[in-house]
Structure formats: structure tokens, C-alpha cells
Write a protein that binds this DNA or RNA. Sequence first.
DNA 1: ATTGTTTACCCACAATTACCCACAATATAT
DNA 2: ATATATTGTGGGTAATTGTGGGTAAACAAT
Lengths: 154, 154
Amino acid sequence: MTINQDTFTGEFSYTIDIKGRVNIPAKFRQSLAPENDQTFVITRGMDPCIWVYPLTAWQIIEDDLKDLSAISGINRSFIRNTVRYASSVTFDKQGRIMLSSNLLNYAKLKKNAFIIGMVNKIEIWDPSELAKVDKQNLTMDSSEYDALAEKIIL
Amino acid sequence: MTINQDTFTGEFSYTIDIKGRVNIPAKFRQSLAPENDQTFVITRGMDPCIWVYPLTAWQIIEDDLKDLSAISGINRSFIRNTVRYASSVTFDKQGRIMLSSNLLNYAKLKKNAFIIGMVNKIEIWDPSELAKVDKQNLTMDSSEYDALAEKIIL
DNA sequence: ATTGTTTACCCACAATTACCCACAATATAT
DNA sequence: ATATATTGTGGGTAATTGTGGGTAAACAAT
């Protein structure tokens, strides 16, 4: 019945309403471990999308950041940019979370959104952005992609 | 009485009902190891068919994906495309699983389906697609095929 | 305080899914 | 062969899920 806790797979299509709310797939809500207390941490992804972490997973990232020395300027910049756009969100009784307009703009999200399980995190994409980025990666680095496919035995 | 756990062989013909449910052959259900908790993971195959993994087999793939660094865009694309169409399904009291319309379309499945044991996974095919792909491979790469036949002593 | 705006918390409802039960066809046992 | 269990297929019903919107509390600015 339950997969690994805090493990997410699959693609789902949802609509973002006027208030900026999106549904979190029921499956993802159920596989979110109880100690996360129904909260995710959302932030900017490395791609033009929103990254959604289970709270406990994000806390590990924060702990790692604490270990970085503040003497180095580059460390401070790294910490700043990692945490800057992150905020924790709880989902409401209907299973939705609120997205800030800052994140919505960053991911170019409008009305429709794909929510994709990325094993240990979740991504929220605008459909056309997803297609664009995916196509780009596959055409530019197709040999690297094939190398991965050889390595991971499906 | 039992072959190796999580090992599947043979071909079976079933019908997909209006709700998108297909039967999993009783033989396959019985050879699914108990620790899978009656769940499979279904996803797009490399051929136009549906791939069905025992849960524990799929989790090994997920673990491999977790080890890939998220810094590389091509890695993210690979993870995304591998996991994107995957979802875990439990079979009901009658031994059926539900197939999403996304996967049904991808595999061009209509009313009839062949379910084929592929040793460590299971494939679900539309009969005519299977014939087409098989014929194509055998005519185009017949010498490679023969080389394999030499290697695997039957 | 008085506004206006944003956020949190409800309720409503259509659509989908999960969970049952029925039954014919096949297989197994006595 | 006859009885009994198992398997494959269909369908009904209740619960869940996704989506919209309403209202009141919290907050900000004047």
C-alpha cells in the first residue's frame, strides 16, 4: 500500500486557482512521512520550476548549510541564495498549498501545472516550460543521456 | 512448486474493461514476493508497451537515481523522464490493476492485451503493436539476433 | 481606529476512484 | 463424473479527490 516514505513518482496535471493554490497529489500527501507534519518547503528549482521538499529533507539541507564557515564570502552567498526563496507551507483540508507570486513568476506558471515526483523531491512545472527544457537537454547532451541509460538498468 | 520469486515467464491474453482495469495472471500474482505487498510499479516501456515491475525491483532503480547529482541538468532530465510516468498500483480482490489513460494511450492499448513475462519484469502489449515491433526487430537486426542465440545456450 | 489586502479556514459539488458483490468459465479435487 | 474451488470479467455503491468559492481572522498602511 505505501511506497517508501517521502518518495515521489509520477506526473499529475492540476490547475492553479486565482488565489495561487495548487493541489498536491493525494498519492504524494500519503507518502509524506508523518514527522513532516503535513508541511513541505518550496523554493526555486535549478530549472525554471518550483522545488518542493518534505520538511525533514529540507532540514538536512539546512544543517549542512550551518556547517559552512561564514568567513568565506562565497559560502555566505551560497547560503543566501539557497535559503532566500525557501518557505515552508502546510496543505489545507483539501490538500492544496499556496504558492507565492514570486515563485509563480519564476516558474512562469499560469493556469495549468504539472506536478512531477522526482524521487526525493517534487517539481511544479508550467507545461510549456517543461517541454522546452526537456527538449533542450535531450538534443544538446544526448550522448550523456545515453550513458546514464546504460548505467541505470531498467 | 514455485519458480524463483519475482520471476515471470509466459504469455497471457486478457481484456481491458471500460474502467481501464486488466487482470494480472494468477501465476504472476503468486510469484510476486510477499515483501512487494501486492504492489507493482507500472511505467512506459522502451517499446510501445507498459512495463510492470515488482515494487522492490523498482525501488532499486529509485535508489540508483537518488545517487545522481542534481547539479547536472542532464541528470535531472534523466531522472524526470524515468520517473515521470511511473506509478505504483495494488491489485484488487479480483487480481486486477488500474491503468491510467496516459499509459493506455502510449501503448496504444484498446480492448485486448497480451501480458508477457520478461523474467524480472512484465510487459503489457497491444497485440498488433507487439507483432509490428517484433517483426521490425527481426528483419532489421537478424544477424545480431542470431549472435544472441549462439550465446544463450538453449 | 478605519480602511484595504492578504491569508487561513470552511463548505459545496462534480468527477473519479476504491471497494464490494455477482457470475460464468475454467481448473482442481474427491 | 460430480462437486468444489479458483480465475477472469462485469457492474454498483460509497468514499475520496480536485476545484471553486465564501467568510472571518490577521496584517498593513493610512
